[in-house]
Design a binder for these strands. Structure first.
Lengths: 191, 191
DNA sequence: TCATTAAACGGAATCGGATTCCGATTCCAC
DNA sequence: GTGGAATCGGAATCCGATTCCGTTTAATGA
């Protein structure tokens, strides 16, 4: 066996250029997907990032992985917004509504990212990390809202996640006025 | 110019074998997509239908068109169910809930079709026919429910369509207990 | 019934885009 | 500065959708 050196976590600090390129690719992907939708092609991303295709694949094993990574990044920003802008809200139910509304805002502004964000929020599988983060903010607002009596006590975080997932679909499919969807969905949580 | 014969609608009755094959392909596609999800491949559908790939493409110009066709067929069945089972419901609000619930039932039973059905119901574009059909049933139930006072008067058919669209996404992404989603969504329509 | 012809068939060939591979290059530790 | 592992780049490969065209078949009417 390896009599080697490294401890339980053999994470070696990546080479500087590697880290830089990873960021470039991610940023480029974000931009390209935003502009052209997620049907944009890998070579296009590579070109935009100023690297070879091989490099894109070194950092993201597949197109799907790249899209997911972009989605998670976006999702992290959304959650951050929730933490700083919505959690502090005096009325928790309003904070929750604002949180969901904000998600709609981001999604509709960057249609091309809908699918990836929908996946990041929705599915129970992916890393789980993303979903966990999202549930933290929503969970706290939800708990407070229940105390306030502005949300039914039987509502669970999962219910909110499903609303968000549906919201993404509504926007992606251009199914209608998503603000109405949000309004109705929130109404559905009230006592 | 064509001094020809046929009237405004030059629809010539298709050859018998053509019509038969079209049906075979559609049925095979439905089965294959149900079993393997919509990532199933065209050759697979052709094989299942017992025809050549060329024949599949003769009847459906593209993979997307085939998927859409399957979706529309499914959607038509759903609407039919709505017309016969839900419209007659004494309490319109219950009928509407049952309608939506039934859609969830079908979608979750045949996960592979979610995407196509979501598209058939959701998007404002495709033929419009599908959506129009769906709106008829939902619209009537909605109108009655408003009269009953069990649904807010400001609710529109589009709101219901968005709920359905979201439902499809929830199921497709396995985002949670879709029955809860439906329950909450319906609650959101009440006064 | 049989010939004629447009329509439909089948599947090999083509095309496009994701993914893999590997020689050339670049960082980092010594 | 040198050695060698980690990266890079992009040509080559793979895979599945779609097209093309020679062959077959259903419909028509002599």
């Amino acid at each position: 066996m390896a009599p080697s050196s490294t401890s339980p976590t053999p994470h070696r600090r990546p080479r500087a250029d590697a880290e830089r390129n990873r960021t470039r690719v991610l940023d480029a992907a974000r931009e390209v997907f935003r502009a052209r939708g997620d049907e944009a092609q890998m070579p296009e991303v590579a070109r935009a990032a100023g690297v070879g295709i091989g490099t894109v694949y070194r950092h993201f094993p597949s197109r799907a992985a790249l899209i997911a990574a972009v989605g998670e990044q976006r999702q992290a920003e959304i959650v951050e917004f929730g933490r700083t802008r919505c959690l502090p809200s005096a009325a928790a139910a309003d904070g929750l509504a604002a949180y969901i509304e904000h998600i709609g805002e981001v999604l509709s502004a960057e249609r091309g990212l809908s699918a990836s964000i929908e996946a990041a929020f929705g599915s129970t599988e992916p890393t789980g990390e993303g979903r966990a983060r999202a549930e933290t903010v929503a969970g706290q607002l939800l708990a407070r809202a229940k105390e306030e009596g502005t949300v039914r006590p039987d509502v669970e975080v999962g219910d909110v996640v499903m609303i968000v997932c549906g919201l993404a679909a509504v926007i992606r499919n251009n199914a209608g006025d998503w603000r109405r969807y949000v309004r109705n969905a929130c109404a559905g949580l009230r006592p």
